[in-house]
């Protein structure tokens, strides 16, 4: 049960990360439009709520939800580092791109 839940959780955290105001404007070129941000965010929250609802129906709900919350934290930490890496790479690439366009 934890495996499908953790997959839904991972998807939800990815969507939320993409639709966070700062990431939406800095990670994407052009930045995600405000409407899309809201939609993606809503879908992320919906998935998150669904994962908790499904988890709470399981036989061992307490243990499962504790593990699920822990995994969500872990995903958030890894995705944050992923975002940092993406931004770093993007900033490194951009000046070169600008130079190429100029020439």
């Amino acid at each position: 049960m934890l495996l499908p839940l953790s997959f839904i959780g991972l998807l939800a955290v990815c969507l939320l990360a993409a639709a966070t105001p700062r990431q939406a404007s800095e990670l994407f070129t052009p930045p995600l439009p405000h409407k899309q941000q809201i939609l993606i965010r809503a879908f992320g929250f919906l998935l998150l709520a669904a994962s908790f609802f499904v988890g709470s129906l399981s036989h061992n709900a307490g243990r499962l939800l504790i593990a699920h919350i822990g995994l969500l934290g872990l995903y958030a930490a890894i995705i944050s580092l992923g975002c940092t890496l993406c931004l770093h790479n993007k900033k490194r690439r951009d000046p070169a791109k600008r130079r190429n366009n100029h020439t």
């Binding site: 939320l16 990360a17 966070t20 990431q23 919350i69 944050s80 975002c83 940092t84």
Partner: peptide, 29 residues
């Protein structure tokens, strides 16, 4: 707004980002 944000190499700002990030991602724990 600052969720998932870590800006390395910016001195005090980086420490604050790391502090916020570590605090928020495992806040329930």
């Amino acid at each position: 707004l600052d969720f998932f944000t870590f800006r390395p190499g910016k001195g005090q700002r980086s420490w604050l980002d790391a502090h916020n990030l570590l605090g928020v991602v495992a806040l329930p724990f």
